[in-house]
Computed example of a mutant assay.
Amino acid sequence: MTKPLPPLLHLIKQLIAIPSVSCVDTRLDQSNLAVIEQLAEWAENLGFRCELMPVSTPHPDIAKWNLIATLGTGSGGLVLSGHTDTVPYNLERWQCDPFSLTERDHRLYGLGTSDMKAFFALCLHAAREFCHTPLQHPLIILATADEESSMHGAKALIKEGKPKARHAIIGEPTGLRPVRMHKGIFMESIVITGVSGHSSDPRLGNNALEGMHRVISDLLQWREEWKSHYHHAAFNVPIPTLNLGHIHGGDNPNRICGDCELHIDVRPLPGMDLNELKALLHQRVRQVLIDTGLTVEFIPLFEGIPAVETPANAEIVRIAEQLTAHSAEAVAFATEAPYLTELGMDTIILGPGNIEQAHQPDEYLALDRLELMLAILRQAITHFCVKKS
């Protein structure tokens, strides 16, 4: 027997009130278990079967969990997916309490309103209308951990090989426009070690900074080569990018630089394999330094997220375009879509928030987006779970 679901704004308020920051800095990192347990309680009250999946992270004392809530049985079906964590926040920059839902100027303010706790409340309210409807295919609500920091939650799904479904919608903030592709990303540290010495005689040392100069020149040449080999007109920046984001070397002008470190950010297009790119990066850097006597070490700063592209003719893309009256787009930010794709789902990103509000003080979600998103979710559930395929 199902139980009544609280009003939509009450659900959003409850989710926003539960802190669930994920961060690579353990001083800021928090558990998401309270959010998962609250979602599971509401889902079970609607008749969903709930599985809480522990997620292994480098911080074992901070509990991280995924939730797989399933209504109905069988194969195929639809996954409505989101992450339960938020980014850290600067309290002094907020004009309201980040953990207290504030309604003002036809907007809902709070940490996670746009990115993306409110999406779970919308999913549950859309799902409650199907609790007593015979489903031809299952409806699954998926809630993950650590999307904002490490993707440990999504990686745990790959390890377990679930959930299994045919189609997926990830409710990241897209302004109610369907997104079927995004670039990948990885970040790497390149550390060159030489020999320090007195600057008056170069023979006394081996300058790591000069070695890094060679490396940077080659990386910029590699980036130029990409322009001739890779292009995707769907993206605002239609080429892969390589950014030189941070460098530090040496300690004083009168000492030969003994070590130098460079941080880079690479964002490949769909079709460019992350592992192949990393291998080629390492090969090129080592080749540049082969006769210098310098040593080099590569340290992953962020292992990365693959690029993703769901075919334009996929059913989930066509239905999303019909429901939103917008053609599917490409975005620069990364999501959990590659992991759901790896699990066998055709995946789109479609949510009520705007990416411009994500990760910002006074994050908000426009009130008029709620009913619009509910209508889209109801129709998507009807199409993929109720109608016979």
Rank of each mutant, 00 (worst) to 15 (best):
M116V: 02
M181C: 11
V87E: 07
T113D: 00
R369A: 04
T193G: 12
C50F: 05
R49V: 14
P138S: 11
K64N: 04
A154L: 00
L111H: 05
M345Y: 08
G245C: 15
G112Q: 07
D105I: 00
S189D: 13
C385G: 07
F48C: 10
A279C: 11
T144N: 04
I16H: 00
I68T: 07
K13W: 03
D259M: 14
D265G: 06
E315D: 12
I290W: 09
A208W: 09
T57S: 03
G293R: 14
E129T: 12
T295V: 09
A233Y: 08
P268I: 04
A43P: 04
G153I: 06
E160Q: 10
R93Y: 05
G211Q: 11
L277V: 11
T295N: 15
A330E: 04
H182Y: 03
A320C: 08
I319S: 06
Q360M: 02
T133M: 12
H106S: 15
H359N: 02
K388Q: 15
A234E: 10
A325G: 09
A208V: 09
S81G: 13
A127R: 02
A325C: 15
L281S: 05
M116R: 09
Y339M: 05
I185W: 02
L365I: 01
C123V: 10
R104F: 09
E356Y: 03
E44K: 03
E37L: 14
E309H: 01
I381D: 05
P240S: 11
P300H: 15
T57Q: 07
P300F: 09
V331Y: 02
P6R: 13
L365C: 08
R27I: 10
T292G: 15
H231V: 12
I316P: 04
W94T: 00
L350S: 02
R107M: 11
H248D: 10
G171D: 02
I239Q: 14
I16K: 00
H83M: 07
